[in-house]
Amino acid sequence: MLKNFQRSHFCKDYSDEIEKNIQFINSLSINEYHYKILNFKQRKNILSKVEAEVKNGNFIPFWNFFYMFDVYSSITKGIQQHHLKFPHFNSDAHFAIEDFYHLDLKDVIKNTINIKEKNTIIFTGANMSGKSTAMKSISIIVLLAHLGVAVPAGHCNIPFYERIFLHFSVNDNLKEGYSHFMQEIINLKNVLQELKTKNCFVVFDEIFSGTNINDAAKITVDTIDGLSKYKNSMFIFSTHLNLIENYLVNNKNIMLLNLESFLTDNELTFTYKLKEGWSKLEIGKILFDKYGLNDLLKQHY
């Protein structure tokens, strides 16, 4: 299989590594016995040769190559199967991902995000509209791109970030004795310390949901305003705090996005398409009533 590769398609370092392992395999004198029935003496000769190479440590580089070759093969099959695209990196803070989607979804709705001269995205929208899925899709693409792997998007051109922080579903830390809110404070502090010297990609899904609504509103505005000043980093937030909209709309570094949804005759419709602007749709009470919780709570036993 290694001999059949068009090694001109590989970078020189990996092509040289393939050639080195072909030579090692040839040195074991096993090709002449391929697909043949061997007698005892022939098998013994091969095993003796292999045993000597094992003792000399010559098989260690081969197995290292073999395991990584298996990794590369698996990645390649995944890229072909899902029609993934290799990303591009830029140095002008342009963040563009076209026709992106989440690999775990079968019937995908593709979206596009194209940001210039802004570094902060705020996602709003009703529950189940797809905010977290969109944020995770973008996060996965950024992470895979920085690992040197192709991404689930039609095109990807983003800055290179030195640190990536993805904060989804933050919980308390019983071992350290931190509450949910305290863990959020620690997460934010870790980000701020890295921002002193590094360009970062940072995601906070429903930040400061671990404290009361008045505290959450004030410190969310302070956090977003403060982080948006780090022009060479990218920050993505989601929030249900509609009362903070007026404090953020005039910040030129912020882009407001929502996942389109409609409410008609108490029936919800989700398109899962990204739209600009702040979503005002609130469906908590509607879902509460729709699933009969009011009636159940009023029952007496």
Rank of each mutant, 00 (worst) to 15 (best):
N21Q: 15
S139Q: 08
A96S: 14
K36D: 09
I219N: 08
V108N: 11
N199T: 08
F160A: 12
D99I: 04
L84R: 02
V50I: 15
I60S: 09
H146G: 09
F69H: 13
I224L: 01
N294I: 12
H9K: 15
N266C: 07
V191A: 06
D172T: 05
Y67V: 12
K290A: 10
K275F: 08
D172E: 14
K189F: 08
F69W: 13
L243R: 10
E32H: 08
N31Y: 12
I37M: 13
N173T: 01
C156F: 06
I75C: 08
T112K: 04
D225R: 03
F123W: 02
H34Q: 14
S228W: 02
I138R: 06
I18M: 05
Q81H: 13
V151L: 11
V54T: 08
D205P: 11
L47D: 11
S209V: 06
K3E: 15
A145I: 06
F69D: 13
L287N: 04
V108E: 10
I140Q: 13
Y291P: 01
N56Q: 15
F86R: 08
I46G: 01
A126V: 00
K118E: 00
E32W: 07
K44M: 12
F235M: 03
L227I: 03
G210W: 04
D225I: 02
N45S: 14
W63E: 15
F95K: 02
L257S: 00
N4D: 14
K198R: 15
I286K: 03
Q299M: 11
K280I: 06
F65K: 04
I121F: 03
N58E: 08
D295N: 12
F235D: 01
G177V: 02
F24T: 05
Q183T: 15
K218P: 06
I79L: 10
A145E: 08
I283Q: 02
L227W: 03
L243G: 07
P87I: 08
L281G: 00
H240S: 04
T76L: 15
M255V: 15
G154D: 07
F100Y: 15
A96K: 14
L47M: 15
K3V: 11
Y291D: 05
P152H: 04
I207C: 10
S29F: 10
K41Q: 13
Q80H: 13
I121Y: 02
